Amino acid sequence: MSLDTKLASDEIKGLGIDLAYIPWMTKLVEGYDRETLKLLFTAKEIDCCQSSSYPHRDFTVCFATKEAVAKAFGTGITEDIEWNQIEAHLTQDKLTICLHGRANVLAKRATIYLWKARWWHWDEHVLVHALAI
């Protein structure tokens, strides 16, 4: 193993992947009002998704991002992390992650200072992977 490979692998703190089904998210989003959706999504995510040309796909990306980040922590969503403490920012086809509250504290404890995320869409599915560095 080269020194560069060793350094790169030491920086990786976790990897999370999630596959989500858009029709499931469509049913969920259409079944609840804005205040209830705030239990899962931040106001910024809701505004961004609702103004999108593809709102159901974008809500699915945000949800899958939360799942992928929680998996990268190695815990999944627990009482330590609330859904709306993990925020996905979608700009064009770029995905960035912002943590709030206890999720941010957990990341700092784990010395995670950077998130790299990508997403893909095909048919009725969204795949998100989040890399904690």
Rank of each mutant, 00 (worst) to 15 (best):
I112R: 10
T91Q: 10
K13W: 09
T91W: 07
D33S: 15
A130F: 05
W115H: 07
C49H: 00
D123A: 13
A117C: 07
S51P: 01
P55S: 02
G14R: 08
S53I: 12
S2F: 01
V105D: 09
K66L: 05
R109C: 08
T65E: 01
I81R: 03
Q50E: 15
K108V: 02
A88G: 08
K66T: 01
I46F: 05
T111S: 12
I86Q: 00
T91V: 08
A70M: 08
R102S: 10
L127W: 13
A8L: 15
V69Y: 00
T91F: 11
E45T: 02
L99Q: 03
L28E: 06
C62V: 03
L95T: 08
K6N: 06
G76C: 04
T60N: 03
H129M: 13
S9P: 01
Y113G: 14
R109Q: 14
F59Q: 13
E67N: 00
E79H: 14
I77Q: 00
F41N: 06
E11R: 15
F63R: 04
G16N: 00
P23G: 00
A20I: 09
R102D: 03
L127K: 08
G76L: 05
T65C: 01
E35H: 13
I22V: 11
T36A: 09
Y21Q: 02
V69G: 01
